[in-house]
Design a protein around this nucleic acid. Structure first.
Length: 594
RNA sequence: UGCCCGAUGGUGUAACGGUAGCACAACAGACUCUGAAUCUGUUUGUCAUGGUUCAAAUCCAUGUCGGGCAACCA
């Protein structure tokens, strides 16, 4: 059942533009800087931008916002593509705007004006792209360095930009005071000459910048003659050593949007104060086509995690996690490795909505979206995480029965399988209590419990070693109580999972929990102090034999425990499962009360 | 400090001058060969004070609180 089409203030604006035919086509973009891995906050933005594209018959370009070569790396360019492709999958991949590899913007005349346009290629699937001879790639802001440079020259010629020789500190000081730079009134000729020489690499880093000439004492700091270009003697991951000057975000972003024909440039709230500058640049250039406009929404903050690239980088570099794709990380690749599906993530993004209010979303909303999806798709399996041995004393030694088990009660067509039953079994340690707490309806001395898909058993004897440790339970089965049997209808309050000891296969199971112990780890500025020391526990579980064939494409529910996915470390003969998320546990809650 | 933005149950959101609704969470119950799922029910809310209006969560004013920006980062 597809959720109803989402509605929020940005979609309302887009819908109004569609009904008044303001643009020939709605065109959004997702523009990460390739300086880190994408996280769940980016997922919100991806779902918004691609969601709008698919709901309004538009396109969403993937663009690398790569104007600062010293912070960026090709590693990130690649991970971003993988993460976006995974998240939008069959949902919106046909809305993904890409371009032919190496293609530069088309130069043309429009209304007697020079115009640059970089059209999208769209409507392909990831599989098609992989096998096609025609290679496509994302857009890059760095593809437009030539055009952006031309726009800067045009601005200089209009007397709207100047080369400034102030040091960074002086610039800062002057801007704070609302004072004009002494270089503000340089002639167009001198500005052109200096800017050309900046481009040629004649000056060292920091020596000069290109600045917009707007209002030196504007109330909005971003209008106080902001920087447009800086000198950076650094090679770029896409353009190599071609450039020694690089445009600033504010100059590059609006122009990149324009060149790609973006109509709705959606970003997070912190760019709100930049919007007048975004508009000023585009308007000052007297451009040929309809201008893009910027809209802002609140970024996602999620409880029990941190989201900033700086902090995630710290976790990785200080080896507090195993990498960017550690299943405890809020990165898209981490969440994916944990076993969460793209659909669950998209549903989550849908559920939290889009507003301008900065709130903290409760993790339980994410967890609910994950469980809801996994409940529908997971194959049920029997596995015992912390085994204790049970001997069925009235069951013949050497006898093995293959019992029928259902793969997924939520989905009848998923069929069933056989699980072997024998005299010696494992059950969960938590499913037995020698001194049962109130309302405990699992196994206890003298008590009865149903073994799922098998018999009702009664605990006759508790065997302990000399130190008093539990060694095994000796039980008798009601041999007529097997599913379908004469006494199978007997009402027994508790049903527990089990595995035949002789048939069990061992698997490494990684039990992941929240990375932090508090909802706002960075509230006191020291997020590492709140790392959860028990965020990962690795155990060896006893699994039913069918799990030997577990597939990385499937999801599993170990009955009564949790949802699991096969980890990439898994290999034939060495099963590794990640616990994606536990089942809800009403008993744990009840037991705590007591 | 200046500029910008925001404020609806515990949390996230809807209501676009006309019955404050939804989801998560919580609680209670039904059902259960998963203490899951499912089903039923319950609790909890318009930041404050004025104003406009037949009618205000919604419009206006003031205040309070919260967030953002003030990088040769994005």
């Amino acid at each position: 059942m597809a959720p109803p089409a989402p509605s929020d203030f940005i979609r309302d604006i887009v819908a109004a533009h569609v009904s008044e035919h303001k643009y020939p086509r709605i065109h959004t973009r997702f523009p990460p800087e390739p300086n880190g891995y994408l996280h769940i906050g980016h997922a919100k933005s991806i779902c918004l931008n691609f969601g709008i594209a698919r709901e309004f018959g538009g396109i969403c370009n993937l663009r690398m916002d790569d104007t600062n070569p010293t912070k960026e790396d090709i590693e990130y360019v690649e991970s971003i593509q993988a993460d976006v492709n995974w998240l939008i999958g069959s949902w919106a991949e046909d809305r993904l705007g890409l371009k032919h590899s190496g293609k530069a913007p088309e130069a043309k005349m429009m209304d007697g004006k020079n115009d640059f346009f970089q059209p999208p290629v769209f409507g392909t699937s990831e599989a098609e792209r992989k096998h096609s001879a025609i290679k496509l790639e994302p857009f890059y802001a760095s593809d437009y360095f030539d055009q952006i440079y031309e726009f800067a020259v045009a601005l200089i010629k209009k007397g709207k930009a100047f080369v400034c020789d102030l040091t960074p500190d002086q610039t800062d000081e002057f801007r704070r005071l609302g004072k004009a730079s002494p270089f503000r009134d340089r002639s167009v000729e001198e500005n052109l000459d200096l800017f050309t020489r900046m481009k040629a690499g004649e000056f060292p880093d920091g020596a000069r910048v290109l600045r917009a000439k707007i209002i030196v004492d504007a109330p909005n700091i971003w209008l106080r003659d902001p920087l447009l270009y800086r000198i950076k003697t650094a090679d770029h991951h896409q353009t190599g050593a071609t450039w020694r000057i690089y445009p600033m975000y504010d100059f590059a972003h609006c122009l990149s949007d324009y060149i790609e024909g973006i109509t709705h440039s959606i970003c997070t709230l912190e760019f709100e104060v930049h919007r007048p500058l975004y508009d000023w640049i585009l308007e000052s250039l007297d451009l040929a086509r309809p201008l893009p406009h910027q809209y802002e929404f609140a970024r996602l903050s999620l409880g029990y995690t941190v989201m900033s690239k700086r902090k995630l980088m710290q976790l990785v570099e200080e080896k507090l996690v195993t990498g960017w794709d550690d299943p405890r990380m809020p990165t898209i690749c981490g969440i994916r490795r944990r076993g969460v599906t793209a659909l669950a993530l998209r549903n989550f993004a849908y559920n939290i909505g889009i507003t301008k209010y900065n709130g903290i979303t409760d993790v339980s909303v994410l967890e609910h979206a994950i469980r809801e999806d996994l409940n529908k798709r997971s194959h049920r399996r029997l596995a015992v995480l912390r085994p204790i041995k049970v001997v069925i004393t009235n069951y013949p030694e050497g006898k093995v029965e293959e019992l029928n088990a259902i793969n997924n009660p939520e989905n009848p067509i998923s069929g069933g399988r056989k699980v072997p039953f024998s005299r010696e079994l494992f059950i969960e340690r938590d499913d037995f209590a020698e001194v049962p707490p109130p309302k405990f309806f699992r196994l206890k001395p003298g008590g009865e419990v149903r073994l799922k898909y098998a018999f009702i058993i009664k605990c006759d004897e508790v065997i302990k070693d000399a130190a008093g440790n539990l060694v095994e339970l000796r039980c008798t089965a009601d041999l007529d109580s097997k599913t379908g049997g004469a006494t199978s209808a007997r009402k027994i309050k508790g049903t527990i999972h089990w595995v035949s000891a002789a048939h069990a296969v061992d698997a490494e199971v990684r039990l992941y929990d929240r990375l932090f112990t508090v909802a706002e780890p960075d509230a006191d500025g020291d997020f590492k102090k709140h790392l959860n020391p028990r965020s990962l526990e690795v155990i060896t579980a006893k699994c039913e034999p069918s799990l030997k064939e577990a597939s990385a494409d499937e999801r599993y529910q170990f009955e009564r425990l949790a949802y699991f996915a096969v980890d990439k470390d898994s290999a034939p003969g060495k099963l590794v499962f990640n616990r994606t998320i536990t089942l809800k546990d009403a008993w744990a809650k009840e037991a705590q009360k007591g």
